[in-house]
């Protein structure tokens, strides 16, 4: 874990790391990765990954509309919106 890696993953995470905290974060992440590296020693050949304890595929249901249209309620709690849309800073000049 070095400065360059942390810069890359913070961008992937859309997070900005304050200069003063950078050193501590690099150290913390390094320790955490070193800690989880002990998994390397485990023999997992021919072991299927377990993604979910239920291991069931997604269920299907009857194709009926059950959701209510919450458009107004949802637009109302947005930081910025007009009658129909969420508003963000201009993307295309």
């Amino acid at each position: 874990m070095d400065k360059k890696t942390v810069t890359t993953i913070s961008y992937l995470s859309r997070l900005k790391i304050d200069g003063e905290k950078e050193e501590k974060i690099i150290k913390d992440l390094d320790n955490i990765i070193e800690f989880v590296d002990q998994l390397d020693d485990v023999d997992t050949s021919n072991i299927e990954p377990l993604t979910n304890p239920l291991e069931k595929t997604a269920k299907t249901r009857t194709d009926e509309v059950t959701a209510k249209n919450l458009k107004n309620e949802l637009l109302e709690i947005a930081p910025s919106s007009n009658e129909d849309y969420f508003l963000v800073p201009r993307v295309v000049e």
Binding site: T5, V6, T8, I9, S10, L12, S13, L15, I25, L29, I32, I33, V36, L39, D40, V42, T44, I47, E48, P49, L50, T51
Partner: peptide, 22 residues
Amino acid sequence: LIGSYVLSAGYYDAYYKKAQQV
């Protein structure tokens, strides 16, 4: 940040898949 790291290209198998196997 840890999540982005273990899911990022090149590390996915070494961390995320490995952890799911364990």
